[in-house]
Design a protein around this nucleic acid. Structure first.
Lengths: 418, 418
DNA sequence: CCCCTTCTTCCAACCCTTCGAATAAGATCG
DNA sequence: CGATCTTATTCGAAGGGTTGGAAGAAGGGG
């Protein structure tokens, strides 16, 4: 049983206030935040005071006054510290350094060798990439508020263990232990699905919406699920494995051993496969690099190549049918589609997919749901990983103590008068 | 934005305590409840006092003492009031009267005419059934704490409107308005999926588990979803429409107009259809009453009829493949299968289905999930409907006021000594 | 320079949980 | 049969949160 305490309310409200400030581009006042969150003004003032004291927010000038006291503008204090987000993907380790305003400051990408990769190699590469980020940006280690790391597959977040990797023969790898030693900074581990989702919640569609599903389409595919404003992790941290949902009974073989999985149709490899089916003699369809093949497909479709157009169309229909299942089952307000496949095929795919959703989903949940492309700036996975670190920092009891502690401090210090 | 307040904590804890008392068959002490809920003993004592004062609980004797003061046994006060649960189904209206211990006291079933049925007819029949329940049981209207009504299809719970019915040509029918007038008792409207799920949360597998999926298999099929101990309703109250998830692309036509839906394979009609496919010349497979056909199928399978055995087996595989999707996506701790199909085919179906889940789901979420038959006594839909009324009663601010109100009352009244 | 308007801060009130001391209620033993 | 022991409950104070409203702060306008 999880104990619910009033401090949870406080923590969630703190998140909420800060999310609004991130959302409003430098122009949020306390009043705006109160209106947007539905919290009382007193509470917003209280929480902002706390965030100001912690240096997370700063007051940046005032708004135009229409006769009364002008509102103070709240902004995130970018210089309060740095966050690092790392995306360990199939072929590379991508590490980025953000300031606290979640602006990308520096970026490093290190290729991973093909084939099976040992955990120690990833740890080494990751450690090196982080060191380089610190060196290049001249950031002191102590200024880093946390490092978020996204590892593919199933990750036991609490234990810090990678239970299973789709690409490598990893089993119960104690990543936290290995990385803690190497990095010496606060560390949060999770997987790319949940990273993308949390990025969406802070910086994308999730800012306005409480029930959303975030589809990640790249080498693998998955669905991050956020319901009631809370990320759903599942009983063993493995919710969101949408890729091996059966889309076509006895359809194409999938890497998982089954047939007809969603992933076999809307992942990079699946899309390349669809093109190959439709144009078996076209040598562009046969390359070993699926991302390159899909990029070629996009170009060919733009050029009016009939097989390519048909392949995109068919992919859209597959995607739509698969999304319809989610819409029926979860009745979300928004379905966000993101990552590589979107970057490559983007606008070509969504209209077809949307139309297919309409054919496959029931009227009421379909009308409720909108399908849209991710609006998260830059890479949602590294950003999401950094967001985990941000969330971790915001839960730090040293920095954000209980209210009474603040009050004692205020009394002791004695505020300087005007 | 939904405001989170400390009173929500109180309300949820009140639910939690009471759920434990229902779960422990007459043998729960305050200590047991505290251990089971993880709440502090003081809080449990506090909540119990409130429930005792409201007459919901009573102290029923003491446990054997092993040397110290004996523990008081807590029990639900069945006589505190009555609850009515109504299941409006395709072919009948089934109304049941429960005491507060959720024991069925009286039951009435009224057939509905085949074909399109008007809302007024359902309201009339329902009203009559409720009147009969009151008359037969000699229950005073004022003693009824609430009436829960389950209506098929999509129901706007807050508005009290049936947005869409799968059987009848209902559109935006203001059921609450119609029924309020007829019944004159507190009313809660919802659909059978969510009713079954909430029944499971209070009286079935959900007592021990926080993430569960409840499959309802009868004329239609659906999946009730409870995550983190909370029922998920979806953005427009229509989550759980699992029946029209695509199981076989371009498979059997479904009533919804698409092809290959889950419902076309594991609903009563779907199962009958599978049997018919396998034994087209067997006249037992062709009756108009699907429930009767499935009952015949169960008998034939028991008798060793090869086509019947194959039909059950195939149905199990379909079910397993469909469940695997849910297991992968949501990573629940338990999947409960219930309602008519289970009653008819029960034990024959689950082993095959379980095996198929194993083939179609990923290792980690599969290991986490158990598939089991509903353990909710009697009819989960009427019971769930009654449970909505129970929950409504437990939220009644007149009865369960804030803590301070209690304290004032205690001071004013002055408790009688021992 | 005073008044008016609007934003912020501050305080008291209220809600909820929990710790620990005090009280209650049997069992047991001398 | 009372003292003592053990365990269960009750009670009060403290701690963590939110909120409405009074009081203070900061401009604009006459």
């Amino acid at each position: 049983m999880i104990r619910r305490t009033s401090q949870d309310i406080r923590r969630l409200n703190r998140f909420e206030v800060l999310r609004r400030v991130y959302a409003g581009p430098g122009a949020m006042s306390r009043q705006d935040v109160a209106a947007a969150t539905g919290l009382s003004f007193a509470t917003v003032a209280n929480l902002t005071a706390e965030l100001l004291e912690a240096g997370v927010l700063v007051e940046a000038g005032h708004e135009e006054s229409g006769g009364g006291r002008p509102r103070a503008r709240l902004a995130v204090n970018a210089e309060r510290g740095a966050l690092i987000g790392v995306d360990v993907a199939e072929t590379s380790v991508h590490a980025e350094l953000f300031d606290l305003a979640l602006t990308v400051r520096h970026s490093v990408e290190r290729p991973l060798p093909p084939g099976d990769v040992r955990p120690a190699d990833v740890v080494g590469l990751l450690g090196g990439a982080v060191e380089e980020l610190l060196a290049v940006s001249g950031t002191d280690r102590a200024r880093v508020l946390g490092v978020g790391v996204s590892v593919p597959g199933m990750v036991d977040r609490e234990g810090g263990v990678s239970s299973f990797s789709p690409y490598w023969s990893w089993h119960e790898v104690p990543l936290r232990a290995l990385l803690d030693e190497r990095l010496g900074m606060p560390l949060w581990l999770d997987n790319p699905l949940r990273a993308s989702t949390v990025a969406e919640m802070w910086f994308g569609a999730g800012r306005e919406v409480d029930d959303l599903v975030v589809l990640t389409l790249r080498a693998g595919v998955g669905a991050g699920i956020a319901l009631g404003g809370q990320l759903h992790r599942g009983f063993t941290d493995s919710a969101g494995e949408w890729g091996h949902t059966c889309l076509v009974l006895d359809g194409r073989p999938c890497t998982c051993g089954n047939r007809g999985c969603v992933e076999a149709y809307v992942s990079l490899r699946g899309i390349a496969g669809t093109w190959r089916e439709l144009a078996p003699d076209d040598e562009r369809t046969g390359g070993p690099d699926d991302a390159a093949t899909v990029a070629a497909l996009a170009r060919a479709a733009d050029a009016g190549d009939p097989a390519a157009v048909a392949a995109v169309e068919r992919t859209g229909r597959y995607l739509g049918a698969a999304v319809a299942q989610l819409v029926n089952l979860l009745n979300p307000q928004v379905v966000v589609v993101g990552n590589q496949v979107m970057d490559l095929l983007g606008e070509r795919l969504l209209p077809v997919a949307y139309e297919a959703v309409g054919r496959h989903a029931l009227a009421l949940p379909r009308r409720a749901a909108t399908l849209r492309r991710s609006a998260v700036p830059h890479d949602p996975v590294t950003r999401g990983a950094a967001t985990f670190a941000l969330e971790g920092f915001l839960e730090d009891r040293e920095v954000f103590g209980p209210v009474s502690r603040m009050r004692r401090a205020a009394r002791g210090g004695g505020g300087a008068g005007a």
